[in-house]
Design a protein around this nucleic acid. Sequence first.
DNA 1: AATGGTTACGGATCCCGTAACGATC
DNA 2: GATCGTTACGGGATCCGTAACCATT
Lengths: 92, 92
Amino acid sequence: MSLTHIQSFVAVAEEGHVGRAARRLHLTQPPLSRHILALEDELGTRLFERTPRGMRLLPAGEAFLRHARRILAEVDAAVHTVRGVTAGRQGA
Amino acid sequence: MSLTHIQSFVAVAEEGHVGRAARRLHLTQPPLSRHILALEDELGTRLFERTPRGMRLLPAGEAFLRHARRILAEVDAAVHTVRGVTAGRQGA
DNA sequence: AATGGTTACGGATCCCGTAACGATC
DNA sequence: GATCGTTACGGGATCCGTAACCATT
C-alpha cells in the first residue's frame, strides 16, 4: 500500500475510466491499471467492477474511497502544518 | 512522501534513536536515516535535532508527528473497513 | 575509542512506457 | 473493428545493506 496507489485509486474512482485517470495523473494506462490491481490484491477484494464502458465502484470500493480521501487530505494537512510551523519561526 | 517514510519518522520520534528504531522496523540504520533526511528535505525543514544521545523532536517534528499518527491510523482503518465490507458479503 | 548519525558504493528490486493481447460491443 | 482494460518485456531509477566516515564525549 502506497500513497501513489491511493491517489491512483481516487482518480480512477472519480473518472470511472483508467484512460482518463491516467491522463489526469500524467501517466499511461498500464501502470495505473497495475496500481489498482495491486491494491485489490493487497486488500484481497475487487474494488471496481469492469464494465465495457470503464470502471464502476463496488461497495468495497466505495468504502475504501471515503478513507482514501481522508488519508490524502490528512497528508496535505501535515505538509501545510509543518510549513506553517516553520514560517511562524521565520523559515529555518 | 511515502507511507514508509512516515512509519520511519514515527518510529524514530518514539525511540529518539535511529538505531533502536531501525531494529524495531527490522531495518539497518542507513536506510532509516535516509528516510528521515528525505522527509526533511521534502518538507524543507529539520524535524529532529541531532544530539550526541540521539534524535530529539523539533517543534516542526512534533506538529508532523500528530498528523503522521493520524495518517497511519486512517490507513489501518481503511484496510479494516474494506475487509469488513467484504466479510459482510460473504467473502468474494 | 565508543557511540550515534551520515555518506559511498554495488547489486537486487521496482516501476514506468512501448508493444502486444483479450474481451466486449 | 473500436474501445477498454490487462499482460509481456526491457531499461532506468530506486532502495537496501555493507563498509567507511565524521562528530561528540
